[in-house]
Amino acid sequence: MSAPRVPDGYDPSAFTPFAVTVDLAVFTVRHGRLHVLLVERGLEPYRGAWALPGGFVLPRESAGQAARRELAEETGLSERTAGALHLEQLRTYSDPDRDPRMRVVSVAYAALVPDLPEPRGGGDAALARWTDLSRVLRPGTPGPSGSTAPPADGLVPLAFDHGDILADAYDRIGAKLEYSCLATAFCPPEFTLAELRQVYETVWGVELDGPNFRRKVLATPGFVQAVDGPPRRTGAPGKPAALYRAGAATTLHPPLLRPEGRTA
């Protein structure tokens, strides 16, 4: 098929130009708590404020390529590590006034990763760190956005509309744990069922019944796969625990619904 022909008389300058960026909400479980990756902005606007990793999409790259490039550049993660992360498109944010520099449309992504070493800043990020989500976002409430002044509830403020993006991403991953095998993306290559259960308890903020969780996981075809070899000691009382790895399934049938009325 030949390349499409530009219509005669077409004038691109008739439309107001705008930029496209990517923003990433990257989550991990550290020390039994849900953490999000934040970078300290090294440039204006909002210089010195905390924000989600991200940046402008270059002329010859897709939004997905830009997301992985920015993740590697601003955090110090290797391109190989960044390329292997679970990354999915969240939604597009296009409020005309979301960026004081110009009209900027952002394609946001959510990423789930196992516990990684502390990242380092790079690109236009002065510093990068894992931050306990409870310091940035109150579950069930919108995040603070677009201000460097401390919010009234003591949360760490985020630049631009990144608080809204973070709140949407948190809602997305909480829901996806119910009907997908996404929880294994938080785990190392080999994990125990107790470590997998901790992912659900940390993200959902509830306490799950251990034997019931084990029964549901092992009864779901392709959710996890047993690892050959000796069990591993976890430091908890009792006998060593069996090891598993992520199975071939991507969805849960039936879904693993979060319990109502239970708290961690």
Rank of each mutant, 00 (worst) to 15 (best):
Ala3Leu: 10
Gly9Ser: 02
Asp11Gln: 14
Pro12Cys: 12
Ser13Asp: 13
Ala14Arg: 15
Thr16Pro: 02
Pro17Leu: 04
Pro17His: 00
Thr21His: 15
Val22Arg: 10
Leu24Val: 05
Val26Gln: 03
Val26Ala: 04
Thr28Ile: 00
His31Ala: 15
Gly32Glu: 03
Arg33Trp: 00
Leu37Glu: 11
Leu37Gln: 11
Glu40Gln: 15
Glu44His: 11
Pro45Val: 09
Arg47Ser: 11
Gly48Cys: 09
Trp50Leu: 12
Trp50Arg: 11
Pro53Tyr: 00
Gly54Ile: 10
Phe56Leu: 14
Phe56Met: 14
Pro59Cys: 11
Glu61Pro: 08
Gly64Val: 08
Gln65Lys: 09
Arg69Gln: 09
Glu70Arg: 10
Leu71Ser: 10
Ala72Gly: 08
Ala72Ser: 15
Glu74Lys: 13
Thr75Phe: 04
Gly76Lys: 02
Leu77His: 00
Glu79Pro: 14
Thr81Lys: 04
Ala82Val: 03
His86Gly: 07
Leu87Ser: 00
Gln89Gly: 09
Gln89Phe: 12
Thr92Glu: 05
Pro96Asn: 07
Asp97Asn: 13
Pro100Gln: 04
Met102Gln: 15
Met102Thr: 14
Arg103Tyr: 14
Val105His: 09
Val105Gly: 07
Ser106Asn: 14
Ser106Met: 08
Val107Thr: 08
Tyr109Asp: 00
Ala111Gly: 10
Leu112Ser: 11
Pro114Leu: 07
Pro117Ser: 03
Glu118Ala: 15
Pro119Phe: 00
Gly121Thr: 01
Gly123Leu: 02
Gly123Pro: 04
Ala125Tyr: 03
Ala126Pro: 03
Leu127Asn: 11
Leu127Met: 10
Ala128Pro: 06
Arg129Lys: 12
Trp130Met: 08
Trp130Ser: 09
Trp130Gln: 11
Leu133Val: 15
Ser134His: 14
Val136Arg: 02
Val136Leu: 06
Pro142Cys: 02
Pro144Arg: 13
Gly146Val: 01
Pro150Val: 13
Ala152Leu: 12
Gly154Lys: 07
Leu155Val: 09
Leu155Pro: 06
Leu155Ile: 04
Ala159Leu: 02
Phe160Cys: 02
Asp164Glu: 13
Ala167Gln: 01
Ala169Cys: 08
Tyr170Asp: 10
Tyr170Met: 07
Asp171Cys: 01
Glu178Pro: 06
Leu182Glu: 14
Thr184Cys: 10
Thr184Asp: 11
Phe186Ser: 05
Phe186Tyr: 13
Leu193Pro: 00
Ala194Thr: 15
Glu195Ile: 01
Arg197Lys: 13
Gln198Thr: 12
Tyr200Arg: 00
Glu201Lys: 05
Gly205Tyr: 00
Val206Ile: 01
Leu208Lys: 03
Gly210Pro: 13
Pro211Arg: 11
Pro211Ile: 07
Pro211Cys: 10
Lys216His: 12
Lys216Cys: 07
Lys216Trp: 08
Leu218Ala: 07
Ala219Gln: 09
Ala219Phe: 01
Ala219Ser: 15
Pro221Ile: 01
Pro221Trp: 03
Phe223Val: 09
Phe223Thr: 09
Val224His: 06
Val224Glu: 05
Val224Leu: 06
Ala226Val: 14
Gly229Pro: 06
Pro230Ile: 05
Pro231Gly: 06
Pro231Ala: 10
Arg233Met: 07
Thr234Arg: 03
Gly235Lys: 00
Gly235Phe: 01
Ala236His: 13
Lys239Asn: 08
Ala242Met: 12
Leu243Ser: 03
Ala246Asp: 09
Ala246Lys: 15
Thr250Ala: 11
His253Gln: 14
Pro254Lys: 07
Leu256Glu: 10
Leu257Ala: 08
Glu260Arg: 13
Gly261Gln: 08
